[in-house]
Amino acid sequence: MADIERYKTPTSLAEATEILRAGNVTVLAGGTDLLPQTQAGRVHFQPTLMNVRRVPELQGIAEEGAVVRIGALVTITELLESALVRGRLGILWQACDHFASDQIRNAATVGGNLCNASPAGDTLVPLLALDARVVLAAKPDGAVQTRRVPLAEFLLGPGRTCRAPTELLAAVEVPLPPAGFAGEFYKHGTRPGLDIAAISIAAGARRDGAVLRDVRIAFGAVAPTVIRAPRTEAVLEGRAPDAATLAAAVHAALGEIQPISDVRASDWYRRELIGNILKRVLTHACQM
């Protein structure tokens, strides 16, 4: 393990991004992945360890116009306890309810979950379905600048994002879904939360008479990153969710995923699950 040469605890976004600008920084937020990952040798510390816990700009959940801004340091427990999240971002709330254990939910942050970029990341699947975008902050020339990146572009591969080493993930912004939008998050495992998803699905839509509108579908653990399923969404958009449509949706979904075999599931089983569970989730969603 490489030694940590400096430990920094910035108290503002400006200070944090200044430290990042100097380079070679490992960012510490909730720490729930960092410590075991470094001890197992899967992640190596940079010379500077920066604990961002005291950066106020990274805190809080707020409704800003048609967008919910969730600070990077917001913990999973805070999301679960937020009436706004529960009321308007139901599939995100459900994913938080299926997230690890109470002890981990109390420490783990949404920013950490996003930056880990696990293909099975629990909050990533609903956030992707909800068209979330991340806010990245940097201080290239004396002033803090931010850029917004759609989550789908942020995630590049397992553990890889487009965050530059000098950038800090400050927040995630989630556009409020249209009124009447409802959905379901499904995580495959035998335990309620303390499982790494073998597959996960976030699906939601709005009922418009007999047909579905604003269909959003995302999958976890079936590709190098969590993925949206645009062709599946297109099959369902504007249609009544009858058996033929559901079958067509499954067919489309199976064309959009590229699962692998690992210790948790085979690629074959992941495909079967996506087919079976997508139907089930859509049926539930349509009954809401």
């Binding site: 035998t190 335990r191 303390l194 499982d195 210790v263 948790r264």
Partner: peptide, 10 residues
């Protein structure tokens, strides 16, 4: 994580 003991909810 991957060797799964039974937990309380199960």
């Amino acid at each position: 994580r991957d060797y799964k003991l039974v937990t309380a909810p199960e």
